[in-house]
Amino acid sequence: MLKINNLHASVEQKEILKGLNLDIKPGEVHAIMGPNGAGKSTLGFILSGREGYEVSEGQVEFNGEDLLDMAIEERARKGLFLAFQYPVEIPGVSNMAFMKESVNAIREQRGETPLTATEFLKKAKEACKQVQLSLDFLKRGVNEGFSGGEKKRNEIMQMILLEPSLCILDESDSGLDIDALQVVANGVNSQRDGKRSFIIITHYQRLLDYIKPDYVHILANGKVVKSGDASLATDVEKEGYAFLGQDNAEETNA
């Protein structure tokens, strides 16, 4: 599904990723943990195609194709989805119009007929209920005036509607209370079907109590420094990132 090989990337001439490797097969859930500044969010942005990131070395293959060569919207249409840590507010564009446009762009790519307004509304209502947002949220401007938790749930709602093959969740747990965390986790779990893959980027182990990962990777100083199964997350929770050693700690503080 996704193969990252020796990825080096920088932003404003500062190297953030320094030889990152990752191999994700269909149906797998990978958690990426690590201290602040390790490059976790950068990874999500680079995979989704955000501008301003310079890839100097390495390759990323997505379903056998060169991901880095694709435009942002092309990646999304081919099944990559990033749930943002800080989704932007777009007053004046209704959530509903935005999601309909998005769903139909992706359906077109798959050779499916666009949904009519009625068909879309039905699906949107279901997804809205699933993430426990009231239906008013469909009518409001995209993320406009939403609380932190509502924004995260809105991201999960989009994920459910877009049916991507690879979902990247960038700190979807940050700033959530326990109820909202469960809503997010249930949303993710409902989409696990043995084929769809997930990258869960998180600082804390908390979310992984609800979404059980197949693999956990510790990202520090731009590289995967340790990989293991779900128990690795529990170790990190107990002992912190201290085991990464002095070198990495310095980088992190810089």
Binding site: S48, E51, R77, F84, I90, F98, S102, A105
Partner: peptide
């Protein structure tokens, strides 16, 4: 740019 990126990342074309 950030807002544009958000829409593109959902598969919407640049012109739309």
């Amino acid at each position: 740019e950030e807002t544009l990126y958000y829409l593109l990342s959902r598969g919407i074309s640049r012109s739309q």
